[in-house]
Structures are given as C-alpha cells and as structure tokens.
C-alpha cells in the first residue's frame, strides 16, 4: 500500500489545482488568433498586397484589435486583485513570461493601429472622412508599409510564442513543462487565423492561398502534437503521467475527438479536397479549425493543472 492523506483543503487548490477556469484558455486562444492574424496581414503588407483594395490585411487588424481586447478583458476577469492590475506596468520582471506578455501587448496595440490606418474599410472611411485623410498620408509609402508589415509579423510571432511560454515555464505542472508548447500554440494560432481570414476574405486568390497555408499549418500542428507527446513520454515519470492524461486518461476523448479529429484531421481533409478543386470551399473546415484551437487551449490548461509532481516521499 501507499497512502497519502492530508488535512489541507484549500479552495481552488485541493483535491487538484483548478485556479484557472475559462478565462485563461479563452485569452490564450484569442491571443493566438490575433498573433496569427498579425503575421498573415503583416506578410500581405510586406508582399505589397495593399494595391488590392480587397486585401484582407485591411480588415484583419480591425478584427484583431477587437478580439485582443476581448481576450484581455477575459484575462482581467481572471485576476483576483483587479484594482492592482496597473502594477504590471510599474516593473519589468525578466524571469516572468507574464511580465513579458504585458509589455508585448502594449506594443501590439500601436502596431495593429498602424496597420489599420493604412486603409480603413470603406464603410468606416465613408462615414468618417477624416479617417480617409489619415490613410492618404500612407498612400504610396510602400517602404513604410513594408516596415509596418515586418513589425506586425515580429510582434505577432512574439505574442503567439509568449502564450505558450507562459505555461511552459510553470515547471510544477509537467504537462506544460515542455519546450515545444510555444510552437504548438503558435502553429495553432496561425491555423486558426488562416481559417478565420479564409472565411472573411473577399479575394478568391487570397482565399485559395489561405486554405493552402492553413493545410500547411495544420500538418505542422499534427507533427508538433506528436513530438510533444513523444517528448513527454520519453521523459520522467511525472511527464509520462501528464502525457497519459491526453493519450488515454480523462482528457483523451476530448483531445482525440475534438482537438485532433474534428479540429485538425477532418478540416485538413476537407481543405485538401477544396484546394485540389474536388469540392467547393466550405466554411465548415475553418469553423472546425477555430473551434479545435479553442478546445486545444481548454484541454491544455485544464489537463496541465491536473498534472503534478508525485506528492509521496517514500
């Protein structure tokens, strides 16, 4: 026998850690999506696609800023000492990914705003002519636009990576303590963003390009998930136990069915048929990809909290 009993019963800690509810997965998902959208629209700016007035690089940053604000609101809701949130900006803690994230988010907003100013959607600039005047200042300044694109790509990559690093540095939770988590969240963010922009894109060529890109991101994501699980399974006992939570444990049904099956393999199959012109493009695949990305964050955050070091001494 090996029995461990404790008199501790702290709220949100026992019997298993559950300090983070829906807010953190939602924030990580929206942050990842915005990161992906910044990279994609930044790439379009860099490639000079701004000559095409239908380019989604004009609408994507506007949506991004709304999604990011919603994500940050979710993050704010999660804070237990809300009135002290300003404390984040009184210091920079180099060992804290959350501190890095707070400052990265502060840089992301101006980058998104700069991208939005390049060209406002027609409905907005028709209603507010001053916005059009503002956009005109960017007209023909392709070097500046390219640089805004580069900055958006860089900050998008930093934002996407940070959402993974945030969890992976919390070594007490073996499932998160994998150095590949940032890559998983970044590729998942990119695939979700490609899927989202694919749905809103007006330009047919662009839609085709994004579907192809999404297939690439989804394929990479499968490999990253496989590598992450192999890495955990070939590590210490606690890491093996953590991997088992996803492979055959209590989170396995949701992980295999909703994250891997419906979130990656099925949409990849549908989109492969679509880009090869066997079937028409359908919003079904992008919706599955986006929901898969959201469920992935929920599974990782919740299963990570369940995973732990062995409490026994003997």
């Amino acid at each position: 026998m090996h029995e461990l009993t404790t008199t501790r019963h702290n709220h949100l800690i026992d019997p298993v850690l559950h300090v983070w509810g829906w807010e953190i997965p939602v924030y990580l998902f929206l942050g990842g999506m915005v990161a992906g959208m910044m990279i994609i629209s930044g790439y379009f700016l860099f490639k000079g696609k701004t000559k095409n007035t239908d380019c989604s690089c004009f609408l994507a940053p506007l949506i991004s800023i709304v999604l990011l604000s919603l994500g940050m609101f979710a993050l704010f809701l999660d804070l237990e000492h809300k009135l002290y949130v300003w404390r984040l900006y009184t210091t920079f803690e180099i060992t804290s990914p959350m501190s890095w994230g707070a400052w990265i988010l502060l840089l992301v907003y101006p980058a998104l705003i700069a991208n939005i100013i390049i060209r406002f959607p027609d409905k907005l600039s028709d209603r507010f002519p001053k916005l059009k005047e503002l956009s005109n200042k960017f007209a023909g300044k392709y070097f500046l636009i390219k640089n805004i694109g580069i900055i958006n790509m860089m900050l998008g990559a930093m934002l996407g990576m940070y959402t993974g690093v945030l969890l992976s540095t919390l070594a007490a939770r073996p499932l998160w303590n994998t150095s590949i988590l940032w890559l998983l969240f970044l590729t998942s963010g990119l695939s979700g963003a490609a899927a989202f922009i694919h749905m809103i894109a007006k330009d047919v060529e662009e839609r085709e390009l994004l579907a192809k890109a999404d297939n690439g991101f989804l394929t990479i994501e499968i490999f990253v998930i496989a590598l992450m699980l192999i890495g955990l399974l070939t590590s210490t006992e606690v890491h093996k136990d953590a991997a088992t939570l996803l492979i055959s444990g209590s989170f396995a049904p949701v992980f295999w069915v909703f994250v891997v099956g419906l979130g990656i393999i099925i949409p990849l199959f549908i989109q492969l048929l679509a880009v090869n012109h066997k079937i028409k493009h359908t919003p079904l695949a992008p919706v599955f990809v986006i929901l898969g990305g959201l469920i992935l964050r929920f599974v990782i955050v919740q299963a990570g909290q369940v995973s732990h070091y062995i409490n026994a001494h003997f």
Partner: peptide, 26 residues
C-alpha cells in the same frame, strides 16, 4: 499584498501547492 494582482501564476508554479488566493484577492 498591495503589489499582487491575483494572476495565480505563483499558485500554479508551486510544486508543493503551498499557496492559495486569500478572499481579499492576493
């Protein structure tokens, strides 16, 4: 207490689960 925002990262980072969130938020 007056610098803590109650983000709970420290709670999740502790391998001993020794921390908790006080009802006052820190």
């Amino acid at each position: 207490h007056n610098e803590c925002i109650g983000c709970k990262a420290c709670v999740a980072s502790c391998p001993y689960d020794a921390r908790f969130i006080h009802p006052d938020g820190y």
